[in-house]
Simulated scan of single mutants.
Amino acid sequence: MGNGPLRVAVIIGSTREGRVGDAVAQWFIARAGDRDGLVLDVLDLVDFDLPSGLPEQATREMKRFAGRIDAAEAFVVVTPEYNRSFPASLKQAIDCAYDEWRAKPVGFVSYGYRSQGLYAVEQLRSIFTELHTATMRDTVAFNLLDGTFARDGTPFDSDGQGQAVTTLLDELLWWGLALREARAARPYVC
Rank of each mutant, 00 (worst) to 15 (best):
V20L: 06
E122R: 13
Y98F: 15
T59I: 11
A72G: 09
D22V: 14
A66G: 11
V24P: 03
D159Q: 08
V39W: 04
G117S: 07
Q161A: 12
L43Q: 14
A58Y: 09
N83M: 09
F75P: 10
A74C: 03
L50F: 06
D36G: 10
I69P: 01
R19Q: 09
F86T: 02
G147S: 09
L50C: 06
F86C: 00
G37R: 14
V77M: 03
A74W: 07
A134S: 15
I94K: 00
I29V: 15
R151I: 09
S85E: 01
I127R: 05
N83F: 02
Q57K: 13
T148H: 12
S85H: 10
Y119I: 03
P51S: 14
D22H: 11
L90E: 00
V20H: 09
E122D: 15
F149L: 15
L118G: 01
T139R: 01
L50A: 06
A71T: 11
Y82I: 07
V140Y: 02
G117C: 01
P80I: 02
W27V: 06
A150F: 04
A23S: 13
G37P: 06
G112A: 03
E81N: 08
P105T: 01
L54H: 08
Y113C: 01
F28H: 04
T154N: 04
F48D: 00
F86R: 01
F65C: 10
S52F: 15
E130K: 07
H132L: 06
Y119M: 08
A74I: 11
F142R: 00
D95R: 08
R64W: 02
E56S: 14
Q57R: 14
Y119N: 14
E130P: 00
R137T: 12
E73K: 11
V106D: 01
P80S: 03
F86N: 02
A103I: 02
S52C: 08
